[in-house]
Amino acid sequence: MTEQFEPTIIGFTCNWCSYRAADLAGTARMKYAPNVRLIRMMCSGRLDPTFVLRALSGGADGVMITGCHPGECHYIEQNYKALRRFILLRRVLAGLGIEPERVKLVWASAAEGVRFASETTAFVEEIRKLGPLNWGNQGKDERERMKDENSSFIIQPSSFEKEVTL
């Protein structure tokens, strides 16, 4: 049996929209892929691109950045700044030899629990297709180390299939 690759993804969320969308997905008991671990910020504008690099260098296979829809920012227009940084960051990633698709920007309002859940699951699938982010030997060690650390962190392939049904 070939073990299905389970990516680790860090998600950056905005306190006013996408974090609440995640809350809403929870309240409504929507099931989505368990691979994303969220960090709350006050605004997607807080996202320093080095956070993304830190996550990717630290073992994440992908990073999902979420914010309010254009025109709906709680701080008027800061999500546009996140958008600019995102575009620039993807170029930088390509220059570093990392697939730009590993970083995704998703707009989700506080009411869009369904969207948050489905986008998360879709992104996990996209990263799964890309495969693990190999950071040379170091990344490999990291992965090995994490595996040894606690075997329960290896997700059984069959269990995930059930999660994606929304």
């Binding site: 809350d23 929870g26 309240t27 099931k31 368990p34 997700i155 059984q156 269990s159 059930k162």
Partner: peptide, 13 residues
């Protein structure tokens, strides 16, 4: 709760 127990069903995961 909102980010784990309510959105996933497999206890190990």
């Amino acid at each position: 709760r909102e980010q784990v127990s309510w959105v996933h069903s497999d206890k190990t995961v």
